[in-house]
Computed example of a mutant assay.
Amino acid sequence: MSASNAKLTLAEVCAELRISRSTFYEWRAKQRAPRCITLPNGSLRIRRHDLESWLESREDAA
């Protein structure tokens, strides 16, 4: 599996962004979080590519 195709756990994403799980869920409720995959057991996964695209879309055009 390529690095851009990797699927990150919610804990990995929160650690990378330095946010709490509750902040991520708040963003998700407001539809401001990166796209997520919901597994049958309810766990979330975020594709590395989706996280990178989401971060790029939030860059300031300074």
Score class of each variant (00 low, 15 high):
residue 29 A to L: 07
residue 17 L to A: 08
residue 46 I to Q: 09
residue 33 A to I: 06
residue 38 T to E: 12
residue 20 S to G: 12
residue 35 R to K: 10
residue 22 S to Q: 10
residue 17 L to G: 04
residue 30 K to I: 02
residue 38 T to A: 12
residue 8 L to Q: 06
residue 33 A to M: 09
residue 40 P to W: 10
residue 47 R to W: 02
residue 20 S to Q: 12
residue 17 L to T: 04
residue 47 R to D: 14
residue 9 T to D: 13
residue 9 T to E: 13
residue 46 I to G: 12
residue 26 E to G: 13
residue 8 L to F: 02
residue 28 R to E: 13
residue 21 R to N: 04
residue 13 V to K: 00
residue 13 V to H: 02
residue 20 S to M: 07
residue 13 V to I: 10
residue 43 S to Q: 14
residue 29 A to I: 00
residue 13 V to A: 05
residue 38 T to C: 04
residue 19 I to N: 04
residue 22 S to Y: 02
residue 42 G to C: 08
residue 11 A to Y: 03
residue 8 L to C: 08
residue 42 G to P: 09
residue 43 S to T: 01
residue 44 L to R: 15
residue 19 I to V: 11
residue 34 P to D: 04
residue 33 A to D: 01
residue 13 V to R: 00
residue 32 R to K: 14
residue 41 N to M: 05
residue 9 T to C: 11
residue 17 L to C: 06
residue 26 E to M: 12
residue 12 E to D: 11
residue 21 R to D: 05
residue 44 L to W: 15
residue 15 A to K: 11
residue 19 I to A: 08
residue 46 I to M: 10
residue 26 E to V: 04
residue 30 K to A: 14
residue 16 E to D: 07
residue 48 R to Q: 14
residue 34 P to T: 03
residue 45 R to Q: 07
residue 20 S to P: 06
residue 34 P to I: 02
residue 23 T to E: 09
residue 21 R to W: 13
residue 18 R to D: 09
residue 31 Q to M: 12
residue 14 C to R: 06
residue 28 R to F: 01
residue 15 A to W: 01
residue 46 I to A: 13
residue 26 E to F: 00
residue 23 T to F: 05
residue 39 L to A: 03
residue 43 S to G: 00
residue 37 I to E: 11
residue 25 Y to R: 07
residue 38 T to I: 06
residue 47 R to E: 15
residue 20 S to W: 05
residue 9 T to A: 12
residue 18 R to Y: 00
residue 15 A to E: 10
residue 13 V to W: 05
residue 16 E to M: 13
residue 17 L to K: 09
residue 23 T to A: 15
residue 14 C to S: 10
residue 41 N to Q: 06
residue 14 C to A: 14
residue 48 R to M: 14
residue 31 Q to V: 15
residue 41 N to T: 09
residue 18 R to P: 02
residue 19 I to K: 03
residue 14 C to T: 15
residue 18 R to V: 09
residue 43 S to Y: 00
residue 21 R to H: 12
residue 33 A to H: 00
residue 31 Q to A: 15
residue 20 S to K: 10
residue 27 W to S: 07
residue 32 R to H: 04
residue 34 P to W: 01
residue 26 E to R: 04
residue 29 A to S: 08
residue 45 R to D: 01
residue 8 L to S: 05
residue 15 A to Q: 11
residue 29 A to E: 02
residue 48 R to T: 09
residue 11 A to F: 01
residue 47 R to Y: 05
residue 40 P to N: 12
residue 44 L to N: 13
residue 18 R to K: 12
residue 17 L to I: 10
residue 40 P to D: 14
residue 17 L to Q: 12
residue 27 W to R: 14
residue 22 S to D: 07
residue 37 I to N: 06
residue 40 P to S: 14
residue 30 K to F: 02
residue 31 Q to F: 01
residue 47 R to L: 15
residue 47 R to Q: 15
residue 19 I to Q: 08
residue 36 C to W: 01
residue 37 I to L: 13
residue 30 K to R: 14
residue 32 R to M: 09
residue 12 E to C: 11
residue 19 I to L: 05
residue 27 W to A: 09
residue 34 P to H: 02
residue 23 T to M: 13
residue 30 K to L: 15
residue 38 T to S: 12
residue 40 P to K: 08
residue 48 R to S: 13
residue 24 F to Y: 04
residue 12 E to S: 11
residue 43 S to L: 09
residue 32 R to W: 03
residue 9 T to I: 04
residue 44 L to F: 15
residue 25 Y to N: 13
residue 25 Y to S: 08
residue 8 L to E: 03
residue 33 A to E: 02
residue 27 W to N: 08
residue 44 L to M: 14
residue 18 R to S: 13
residue 45 R to Y: 04
residue 39 L to Y: 00
residue 46 I to C: 12
residue 23 T to I: 07
